[in-house]
Design a protein around this nucleic acid. Structure first.
Lengths: 234, 234
DNA sequence: GAGTGGTCTAGACCACCTG
DNA sequence: AGGTGGTCTAGACCACTCA
């Protein structure tokens, strides 16, 4: 039974968490101050501070100067979702990945999309539609708009050998993103592309990506709903 | 123009992040060591350490002893989802919340559910089904199984005045959870309960909640897909 | 006003990993 | 084997907020 080596602040963190989970301290209750805990654990205040800070970051406790540290009374359930690059997700399951580009055109977008991309009236955007396969079965239909002004070099890219998502991650890493998940019915065209029945359920992810003040791209990702699941934990 | 007060490590954190976003350091590139940065910023090493540690926690950089700190080369897009208490979610939109309990019975669960709840064969579990309304419109159908051994006092609770989710959050706060999201078609019974057409899209959340080694509850939450959206950011 | 957390320092030792 | 990050200390000052 070799224990994984634990740092001191981690031990304290876990010990405090245990006491909270076991209701030794009730929700809403104030726990001892940093100084007191430092004496109790025989360590410096900074060490206790880090342990408690990480609990606060996770929303387990709430801290306020002068008032002290309290066990959170109404913790929200939150979950972290990881949306990995599609090709890696598919290949990680041992399946083969392939993709085809259906359309690539520079056009003036409809008004709603123009606003989302913060474009001036009449300015064109890049519209790309493509289809991703897992083991030669249609896995995702992608409908994307890109603000070309934000991405130098994109006009020269035909996306024949690399898909837009991976190219954009290379071109603009560390952009921020916003996701909206929903369930929809497949319209006729989408159903045909995905090889499913019209009216079948779709799991839809809509993502907006931006860097600073510029919206870079907006994309709608459609998965056949009966075979796609999104997992998350904690 | 009053600036929000910023701590030193936060300034350093933001400055490093800017340099990464602006490609001053490329993905995969090694950034200067803590000691060097401490000199550059005129602060102690601990301060730089905290700034970089928070970047590492977010997946922006990767750190290894001896090798140094590198800008992450393939950052995964991850998003934090907050699943709040349904009543608060509905009331936050200014709508009224109401719920009815459809069934509450203690029965021996089907084999698949028995395994999920880690029950012995023949042991009963609590099965609850209820319906949640937003402004008197059906908003969510809930189908839940609870391991009664894990939750003292639940046998005495009839859930007439408080819904199972809120009761469980009070009884067992700080449990861990796992979510699976998917899109499904409404079967006849679910469709009727939700007042939608059979075959309409459903946004389904399946959640398993546990504390320590005990699975406490498993729940399937069904929303009419064309009106429900789950948001997340970053 | 005073008590609490928030941050910072200057130094130290150690674990880990790469060259 | 040596350089890097990981952690810890003992003290300090400050900011916020409650009483």
């Amino acid at each position: 039974m070799s224990q994984p080596r634990q740092s001191s602040f981690q031990k304290i963190h876990d010990d405090l968490l245990d006491k909270i989970k076991s209701r030794h301290w009730q929700p809403g209750e104030t726990i001892p101050g940093e100084e007191a805990l430092a004496v109790e654990y025989g360590c410096s205040r900074m060490t206790v501070n880090r342990a408690i800070r990480e609990l606060a970051d996770k929303g387990i406790v709430e801290r306020r100067r002068k008032a002290g540290t309290r066990v959170a009374s109404r913790p929200d359930r939150s979950a972290k979702i990881s949306i990995s690059v599609l090709r890696r997700e598919i290949e990680a399951r041992g399946a083969s990945y392939r993709y085809v580009i259906l359309d690539r055109e520079e056009v003036v977008p409809p008004e709603g999309m123009r606003a989302k991309l913060s474009l001036k009236k009449g300015e064109p955007a890049l519209h790309i539609r493509c289809l991703h396969f897992s083991d030669e079965h249609p896995y995702q239909f992608e409908d994307r708009w890109i603000n070309p002004a934000c991405v130098p070099g994109i006009r020269e890219q035909d996306f024949e050998t690399i898909n837009p998502n991976e190219w954009l991650i290379e071109a603009v890493p560390f952009a921020e993103a916003e996701h909206v998940f929903s369930a929809q019915l497949a319209d006729e065209q989408t159903a045909e592309l995905l090889g499913i029945a019209s009216g079948a359920p779709l799991f839809v992810i809509e993502r907006r990506t931006w860097l600073g003040d510029d919206t870079i791209t907006t994309v709608k990702l459609c998965h056949p709903g009966d075979s796609f699941k999104l997992f998350s934990r904690s």
